[in-house]
Amino acid sequence: MANRTTTPPKTTPAPCQPCGGTGNVPITVRVGRKHRPVGQQDGLCLNCFGTGTDPNA
């Protein structure tokens, strides 16, 4: 009898929902006494910690 091994199909991990798989999310920058928004900068996604894959998948 031939010994046959099968490998499971490789699946790609699902992208993270908040960052869309990029690992970065926009953070609003606020300045001044009234904390008015002046722009946005990139921040690390706290859901996937910058990996871009869904941790619950």
Rank of each mutant, 00 (worst) to 15 (best):
F49D: 15
A57H: 11
K10L: 14
T6E: 13
H35C: 07
D42W: 10
T5R: 14
A14F: 05
K34H: 06
G52S: 06
G23Q: 01
T12Q: 14
P13S: 07
T5K: 13
R33Y: 09
P9L: 11
T12K: 15
G32M: 04
V29T: 13
T12V: 13
K10I: 14
P37N: 12
T53H: 03
G52V: 01
L46F: 09
T6A: 10
I27Y: 10
Q40D: 08
P8R: 07
Q17L: 12
G39C: 08
P55K: 02
N47Y: 06
C16Y: 00
N47Q: 08
Q17Y: 02
H35M: 14
P18E: 03
A14H: 05
P37F: 08
P15I: 10
R33W: 09
V25Q: 00
N47H: 13
R4W: 11
C19N: 00
G23F: 02
N3D: 14
P9H: 08
V25W: 00
A14Q: 13
F49H: 15
G20A: 07
C45P: 00
L44R: 11
T11H: 12
G50A: 04
I27L: 12
P37R: 13
T6S: 12
N47D: 08
P8C: 02
K34W: 06
T5S: 09
T6W: 05
V29C: 04
P15L: 06
T28M: 06
G52F: 00
T6I: 15
